[in-house]
């Protein structure tokens, strides 16, 4: 197989509150022989909040990020669902609206950049599944996760709106997504089915609507627990922050003690590939990973 190369847009969280995500992503890429070129020039995607304040500014900044992937001639991979949504949304809007693209490029030209629309944007989860291939991944698994019941938590911004995800991301059906389930199986684990797996974790309303956010987190954790999950796995660091760090608020909100270890998607793959807990940054979790 030809060596896979991508431009990695880390987003902010992987460089701050979830350092274990960046660490495990790089560790897994190395094990699989995937080259990830860090886009250190990239700025924050605005996380759907800058978009509420200043939509045009967020378009310009996201277009600038994509420019750097275009310069390398590589597909951009993201490791955060919300980065994926905002970047892919920017790409879609610019690629389908020449007038808007020209307006954004007029600004980018001030710093010597031009958005062309030549780089695709996809989440690392789908790069592994579609480009590397689950069969190839299975062959590399040397520590199958067969003793674990693992609950997938998909995260909204990788699966909705499907129109956008069909264009530039996994393109799975948001009412019945399968990618994470397939990945769990490829890693030798037992995938657990539960209602909240494709629902919202509440992250984006945490400050302004804490009760709503906490109930949603509680629903996700309790759903996974009721389905006898040993732990959860998610491709989104924002979901991870809710599920891993906010279980005490979630427990209060739903009146039930809920708590489960939650792994980032690359951490799960890394375990199956035989990476050590330290290589995957498992010591950084607030809800302790007590099974390795």
């Amino acid at each position: 197989m030809e060596k896979l190369r991508y431009a990695l847009y880390t987003g902010c969280t992987a460089r701050e509150s979830t350092p274990e995500l960046l660490k495990s992503t790089m560790a897994v890429a190395e094990k699989l022989g995937i080259e990830l070129v860090l886009l250190d020039e990239a700025s924050c995607c605005g996380a759907s909040h800058l978009q509420d304040y200043d939509d045009f500014l967020s378009l310009v900044l996201n277009a600038r990020n994509i420019c750097y992937a275009e310069k390398l001639g590589l597909t951009m991979v993201t490791i955060c669902n919300t980065c994926q949504l905002n970047t892919a949304m920017t790409k879609h809007r610019l690629d389908t609206n020449p007038e808007l693209k020209a307006k954004v490029n007029a600004k980018l030209s001030e710093v010597g950049l031009e958005y062309k629309g030549t780089s695709e944007v996809t989440h690392f989860l789908y790069a592994i599944i579609q480009d590397y291939g689950l069969e190839n991944l299975s062959k590399k698994v040397n520590v199958p996760l067969s003793q674990f019941n693992i609950a997938p938590f998909y995260g909204c911004h990788n699966i909705r709106p499907s129109e956008l995800q069909n264009l530039s991301n996994g393109g799975e059906n948001p009412y019945n997504p399968t990618s994470l389930d397939d990945l769990i199986i490829a890693c030798g684990g037992n995938n657990v089915d539960y209602d909240a797996k494709n629902k919202c974790c509440g992250f984006h309303a945490e400050l302004q609507a804490p009760h709503t956010a906490a109930v949603l987190t509680g629903n996700a954790l309790s759903g996974a627990m009721d389905a006898n999950a040993d732990w959860m796995v998610t491709p989104c660091p924002l979901c991870h922050l809710k599920l891993d760090v906010q279980h005490h608020n979630a427990s209060k909100a739903i009146g039930r003690e809920v708590k489960l270890p939650v792994l980032h998607m690359p951490q799960m793959v890394g375990l199956a590939l035989g990476c050590t807990p330290a290589e995957l940054g498992l010591q950084h979790h607030v809800t302790k990973v007590n099974f390795v």
Binding site: C12, R15, E16, C44, G46, A47, L50, D54, L207, Q208
Partner: peptide
């Protein structure tokens, strides 16, 4: 001027200073 609006505006402040978000 409340937590919700400052949450949106705060992104612009952070990006201007660091490019990335200061969480």
């Amino acid at each position: 001027n409340n937590v919700a609006t400052r949450h949106a505006v705060g992104f612009a402040h952070s990006i201007e200073k660091h490019g990335l978000l200061d969480e």
